[in-house]
């Protein structure tokens, strides 16, 4: 069965390969060639496959592709514009929050969602929100730093009456 699904991925209308049992991660990776979401635990524990659907984080490994019908999907490829990094991506680089890089797409995506929902998170909130994203390389301290940097920059920018840059 091959009914294409109308959906928006990273701002573009497209159709994902159909089939009821197709998982969103396979539709994105195999169907659209978006290789940012990674397959690791495949049990919705590690967060490497995190994508946003209507700005909320989902495990694309545990989500049917059909769930995206008529909705907006954002993968790591969707952050930043025309070669510019998003503030989260920039902060990950600055803080040294990237080593092997396999968890990075999911982590960056989750941090965008975190700061969207909690613009001024304290440490406990950050830890609770990101406890579902596993990184085996960095020891997490740099991720915490990266999130706090972006938080502080956005708050400072908002305070200065500037338009938030994302």
């Amino acid at each position: 069965m091959d009914d294409p699904i109308g959906t928006t991925v990273n701002g573009e209308r497209c159709s994902l390969p159909g089939g009821a049992s197709v998982l969103l991660i396979d539709a994105l990776r195999e169907g659209l060639g978006l290789l940012g979401p990674k397959k690791s635990c495949e049990l919705s524990v590690c967060g490497s496959c995190t994508v946003l659907i209507d700005n909320e984080p989902y495990s694309s490994c545990m989500t049917l592709a059909q769930e995206a019908t008529g909705r907006e999907v954002t993968t790591v490829e969707g952050f930043g514009r025309r070669g510019e990094l998003s503030d989260v991506q920039q902060a990950f680089i600055e803080a040294g929050a990237i080593q092997c890089g396999f968890c990075t797409p999911g982590f960056v995506t989750a941090v965008h969602a975190l700061l969207d929902r909690h613009p001024n998170p304290d440490r406990a909130t950050i830890q609770r929100y990101l406890a579902g994203n596993i990184c085996r390389c960095t020891g997490y301290a740099p991720m915490l730093e990266a999130v706090e940097r972006v938080r502080d920059r956005r708050l400072a920018a908002a305070e200065a009456g500037l338009e938030q840059v994302r």
């Binding site: 919705s44 909320e56 984080p57 989902y58 495990s59 545990m62 929100y129 579902g132």
Partner: peptide, 12 residues
Amino acid sequence: AGALANVRVRTA
């Protein structure tokens, strides 16, 4: 509800 599993499970 806010402490259950992880944020993606809570979303879905």
